[in-house]
Design a protein around this nucleic acid. Structure first.
Lengths: 240, 240
DNA sequence: TAGATTGTTAATCGATTAACAATC
DNA sequence: TAGATTGTTAATCGATTAACAATC
């Protein structure tokens, strides 16, 4: 039985890009931006891969999930590929972002120029602490949380960065989701659950250090009778 | 031909824990610490999983890579499991950490109390900017980079947090590796290559936002003839 | 043309999930 | 004991790598 919504001559269903491939798109984009600064006109999958510590096959496969951007025998033209990747990632047009929680980390992120360069526009910050409300950090105002919904709507904000204490993370995330935010970058060291329509990405500083601690120690699993000390493979790739 | 270094009656070779399993250990640990605060004596894989948005089978499998910590019919005892996980991650004893780059982000991380709670002890920060050298942030001194090697050795520092500008990241990473640092947490938005003995973990803020932007947009791959707009699966898991 | 390099298919590898015997 | 829950094996799923025909 054919799905009635299906096209008459349905194309063979494009493979859905794996999440890790999308993540690597950001790495490719940054590398390409570096090449553009050097006025390099084209780049091969091999060159792109070498600088990043991945395989050339992976570069080609990742890009091919999204289209045919290269030319056989030549490689990829740098400038057009940058434009394509930005379009795919949705950063070809500026995107408004807010920061919730104007503590040390929140204020540091407000000053971070790297976001702007990547097409993200920080339009406001929020807090509940009277000492923070009214602050202006690099031209960005810290508002009371009471104004959250109004500003999210008027500025059409879809992405939020969460730098609140752990105990506030879940209620704030719920409130953001309720106000139509579609993606939350969570720095609060706690598990947050949201409806599946909202995307969530966790930056877990302690977990990163613990990961490194584990690898640095070169500890062995030793599931039972631990023999003499052995070496556990270290060297996780350069990426996350 | 048997490897001559092999044990006479070699055990059936313990399965090497996958990197994602080690990452989840940190999540389990945090969840368990929360349960300990509530004075819960035991927890089942199901309970642990539910709070984190993973499956119970995954919790059991992950833990089983490292030992047999549970009791059939009962579950896992919270306090002993916390101790085991800390031992596995190498955070059962305090670990000295340095921050390289005392800019906004570096100073915010110096004030971040979460590291200490997790067993990491920030002993020094470094910079090359005369305006920053000599600063004291929450009791931690900002040194000139000239003092790097000496302090790393005297304090036996194995882990470093890198919050320098992109162009400085590679040379500083090389220098850290040369001084015996075994793990580098890199916040600089650039690819850094290190010898395989050194572990590297990247916190890529822009890439996280780009990832969310992609998911939020619900964009389609449209490899060639893009049909009518369709929905691409969103909802990446709560973890990274 | 000959050499280079993509896009894509098939083969491999690894991680997750399901299922269940062991056992508290 | 009966019910619960682990540890572990087998089945499934998905991602990476290798290989190569297409083609610039």
């Amino acid at each position: 039985m054919a799905d009635p919504r299906q096209q008459p001559d349905a194309s063979p269903e494009p493979p859905r890009p794996p999440v890790p491939a999308v993540r690597r798109l950001s790495l490719y984009l940054r590398q390409l931006e570096g090449l553009a600064d050097q006025a390099r006109p084209t780049v091969s999958s091999r060159q792109l891969a070498d600088g990043l510590g991945v395989t050339d096959a992976q570069v080609r496969k990742d890009l091919a999930y999204f289209g045919q951007f290269g030319r056989r025998g030549v490689g990829y033209r740098v400038a057009p590929l940058i434009a394509e990747l930005r379009r795919i990632l949705g950063t070809d047009k500026p995107q408004n972002v807010v920061v919730i929680g104007a503590g040390d980390l929140g204020r540091a992120l407000m000053r971070y120029k790297g976001f702007f360069k990547k097409g993200f526009h920080l339009v406001a910050a929020f807090d509940v602490d009277p000492d923070k409300i009214g602050l202006r950090v690099d031209g960005v105002h810290v508002h009371h949380m009471d104004e959250l919904e109004e500003i999210l709507h008027s500025r059409q904000v879809r992405l939020a960065v969460l730098t609140v204490p752990a105990e506030a993370a879940q209620p704030v995330a719920d409130r953001l989701a309720g106000a139509g935010v579609q993606g939350i970058l969570n720095f609060a060291p706690t598990a947050v659950r949201v409806a599946p329509e909202v995307s969530l990405s966790l930056v877990d500083l302690a977990a990163h250090l613990e990961q490194l601690s584990f690898l640095a120690a070169g500890r062995q699993p030793r599931p039972s009778g631990s023999g003499p000390d052995g070496q556990l493979g270290r060297g996780v790739g350069p990426a996350d």
